[in-house]
Amino acid sequence: MKLRVESVSYSYRKGVEALSDVSFSVEQGTIYGIMGETGSGKSTLLKLLNGLYTPTKGKIFLDDREYSSITKSTLPFRVGLVFQYPESQLFEESVILDVAFGPKNKGRSKEEAIMDAEKALVTVGLKKDKWNKSPFNLSGGEKRRAALAGVIAMNPEVLVLDEIAAGLDKEGKDRIFSVLEKLKKEGKTIIFVSHSPDDVARYAERVLVLNKGKLKAEGEVREVFSSPSVPKNQSEVIASEIREKGINLPSPILTLEELSDEIVKVIDK
């Protein structure tokens, strides 16, 4: 599934562009990280990708078909969007029914929708004994995964996620990203937005950097993080502090594991 964004701009109010002249393309089966501060236009971009907003200027293509030529109501099922704090949208009496809401809207029969939901719940690793519980009785991390399952169950080809790890502890975060890794291996395209350079450096294969509505950098993760204008991730900050003390380390360093490996290499030499 190929997604192509061509000189897209979007403004909420006349004269103020939240996103201006952004172009890039997305390959199937890859994890993309979009990085940017609050107000950089990253959330706007996600809503454009999912068809919730229509670009003020420019075009978006899905498999070489322009968005405007695709029936608008089918777009959310092909490019699934997971909002920030998605657990705040849960509303059904049971987890399984909530997850089946999307598939049902897609036009699947009740039985099919339940099957889709079960499959998605297995994917996100929510145990069977939670399926018939009220979503409000789950823990924070479980709620987040249930909400994620709600979008996965619609079986979208592309999955876009807004700050999916926000507010989760380490365990919860690792779990979510291992789910995304799994989906990627199934051939899905994953695009996640985060204001944490650490998460992007750790989990993304390719990176887009947005700043004040403009695309500042785009490329393979290592390539992007070696650019001096891109915000530094923690591991690289630490690495540069160690370098200052005269210990020679390569750059950029993406994770703490990598950093410790490099330190071992230096010592072994």
Binding site: D169, K170, L256, S260
Partner: peptide, 20 residues
């Protein structure tokens, strides 16, 4: 307990495991 550690502490742990 599944708690995250500050980056320097996490790094120290990794280096400790490797015997550095």
């Amino acid at each position: 307990l599944g708690l995250e550690l500050p980056p320097y502490v996490e790094l120290s742990l990794l280096l400790k495991e490797k015997g550095v």
